[in-house]
Structure formats: C-alpha cells, structure tokens
Amino acid sequence: MAPPARTAALSALSLVPLGDAAVTIVLGQGIDLDTNSLVHAVVAAVRAAALPWVLDVVPAYASLAVHYDPLHTDHVTVMAALETFTRATLESSELHQRDVREHLIQVRYDGMDLDAVAATTGLDPEQVVALHCEPLYTVYMLGFVPGFAYLGDLHPALVLERRAEPRASVAPGSVAIAGRQSAIYPLRTPGGWHIIGNTVFRPFDAGATPPCRLAAGDFVRFIPAKSRT
C-alpha cells in the first residue's frame, strides 16, 4: 500500500459509536481503492486478533464496523482498544495477509438497458461490453442484500447516475452498473441500476459453504459468455 494512503487514513482516523453495540472506524470519506484496501487490512487484523468481545466485523468503502456484546464490555473500553489496534495496523510495515481470490465471471451481454446505456454514453453496445470487461474489479464491500458485491472501479466512460425510476423487481444474475460501480444481483429485489447483461453465476447460496462466493477484497473479471444459451 502506498504510504500516502496510510498517512491519509491515519489522519482521517476516527471512531464513533454506532449505537450501543457497535463502533464505526472511519478511515476516510471517499470511494477509492487505496483506502478500501486499508479497510480490508484492518478488518482482517481485527478478525485475526480474535478479541473476545467482537461479534462481527463489517467492511464498507472507507470505514468498518465492529459489533460487540455490551453485556461483556463497554464502549469506552471498546473504542480505546480498537483505536490502538487500528493505529498499530495502519503503522505496521506489513499489512495483514488476506486470502484473496480472483473470479472470472461469464456474462451474456443482452441486458435490457444495454442499448440505452450505449445511447446515453455515445458508445456502441460492443464498446460498452469491451469497456465493462476491461478492469480487474475489486469487491469494495457487500451489502444491500446478502451477496450484493459493490465492484469497482468501472471505466469512466460508463459512469451513469442510477435510473430515475428503480425497477420493482430485478432478476437474480442481472449484471448492472451505476456510478463507478458494477454488481450482480444475487436475489430478486428492487433495483435502480442499469442492467447490461446476465450471468449464471449466483453470488449467494444459503446452503453453500461459504454462502457467498464473493468476499470483500476479492477480484472480479467479467468476460463475454462464449455462446448464447
């Protein structure tokens, strides 16, 4: 990790109570891969430390939450311990090694919004596909619904606001874009992103181990499906 990102995170570092059973650790205010990578490093370090009062650790873009049981500790103790711990992690010469995987996901680029995205961005549908397949995406975080991975960064030429009218129902496997992110809808949910394709990849399966095939910090590459099915 570039030293400037760590320096910035250390100076931005703040801890705030998230209610009476969690603390939010803030490392920055933007959506960028460097800060997000530090978030994953701190998450990995907190998990590895196996602090007895930690119930769950949750990464977001530039912050993370640590959930704890207020029956066994109090927020002053928790905040002090986590601040010390986070500083030490950010200052250590080697960040915690994480088990990161790379996923290759085939996409049928026949989404209902592909032509509209092409028209709005002034590109051909083929160019939209090529640009969507170009980056090696990072899973910034999961949220919204189980398995919904926020992937970035999308090519700048494809950046669009969300749809003005969210759809009431988006099919699982829909590959979509919005802002500087892309995502695969894991479940049938409402959705306001632009659907450019579909995949048979299912990010969430409650019966599988682990239930989620994408983890925060993982890498994703999209490729056009070889044949139409």
Binding site: A21, A22, A60, Y61, A65
Partner: peptide, 11 residues
C-alpha cells in the same frame, strides 16, 4: 452526501 457506511438495527 456520504459513501455508504456500516449500519445496524436502530439506526
């Protein structure tokens, strides 16, 4: 406007 952060029941 803020980037998404962790949240919880009761928020």
């Amino acid at each position: 406007s803020l980037p998404s952060e962790p949240t919880c029941p009761g928020a």
